[in-house]
């Protein structure tokens, strides 16, 4: 069983949803980023999304755009992100890692080589934001051959006719983008989430995680209750950014402040 499937099976037995965290690799520097990555499972992250920095993140708001600029300035490349995952795997063999990013860095790396290297590095799944199912034929065979889950985004705009097609192309879990919009801008209402999750469940048995606009422990707990997990990204990136000094460098308290926030989110989810 894959790490992702195992993790959601375990959580189901525990009777709670997953906390899925998103931080960008190399933000603000490789050492801090690796320290965060290593600290996340202990702070309560059940699944870790590692953002792959890109110059033109089409679906991201200002917070994650700025994170990408910091990360690229710190020397982030796709191969270095994979190296970071390998470092993480030396001390953790159970927490699923999902790379989230855009297509062009993968194309530049070479799709087949990337899928092989990602899998060997201990990556479990991929979210390639700008590759909808219609364009996935180049990636799918290589990802499948390497046992990488392709996690699809489902949006409020994904209509009934389209939903089965999107879900059929999904493995690992479904990422429900709770708002029509970019990351870090607004939050969905409870009512819209309550309607959306059953709509997806009618078409799939995969776990459903809700992301985009989840900032507070209460919102995370609610999303994890309604679905199988809550994804928190921009709120963590904002905490990280606020902890930096005037030159954009990490301070001694940067790692602790972000992980404290993760603990708060995890506690709320565990409390139901």
């Amino acid at each position: 069983m894959s790490r992702i499937a195992q993790r959601f099976a375990d959580l189901k037995r525990e009777g709670r949803g997953a906390l899925v965290t998103y931080l960008q690799a190399y933000d603000p520097d490789p050492a801090t980023s690796l320290a965060l990555l290593r600290g996340l499972p202990g702070a309560g992250a059940d699944v870790i999304e590692v953002g792959v920095p890109f110059t033109d993140p089409m679906a991201d708001g200002p917070s994650i755009q700025k994170a990408a600029i910091r990360a690229l300035k710190a020397g982030a490349t796709l191969s270095r992100v994979l190296a970071m995952v390998r470092d993480f795997r030396k001390g953790n063999d159970t927490t699923p890692i999902v790379l989230m990013g855009y297509y062009n860095p993968i194309l530049a790396y070479g799709i087949e080589r990337f899928c092989t290297d990602a899998s060997c590095s201990g990556v479990d799944g991929l979210i390639i934001v700008d590759v909808p199912p219609e364009e996935a034929d180049e990636v799918e065979p290589h990802a499948r051959a390497q046992g990488l889950d392709l996690i699809r985004l489902v949006a409020p705009t994904t209509d009934e006719a389209r939903l089965p097609r999107v879900l059929a192309a999904t493995s690992g879990f479904v990422y429900y983008v709770s708002i029509a919009g970019i990351t870090g801008t607004r939050s969905a209402s409870s009512a819209s989430l309550e309607a959306a999750v059953p709509r997806i469940r009618r078409h799939t048995d995969l776990p459903v995680c809700i992301g985009f606009g989840i900032r507070t422990p209460q919102q995370a707990a609610e999303a994890a209750r309604l679905a199988d997990g809550a994804v928190v990204g921009t709120a963590l990136v904002d905490t990280l950014a606020a902890s930096l000094d005037e030159d954009g460098q990490a301070r001694p308290e940067t790692v602790r402040q972000v992980l404290d926030q993760v603990r708060g989110l995890a506690e709320a989810i565990r409390a139901g």
């Binding site: 089409m58 700008d130 590759v131 909808p132 949006a155 705009t157 389209r162 983008v177 029509a180 919009g181």
Partner: peptide
């Protein structure tokens, strides 16, 4: 039919935009 000129073109957008 996929919006390709040879290997070029296509529809590389996030799911939110795809239906539109």
């Amino acid at each position: 039919a996929r919006g390709r000129f040879g290997q070029f073109g296509g529809r590389f957008v996030a799911e939110t935009l795809m239906p539109l």
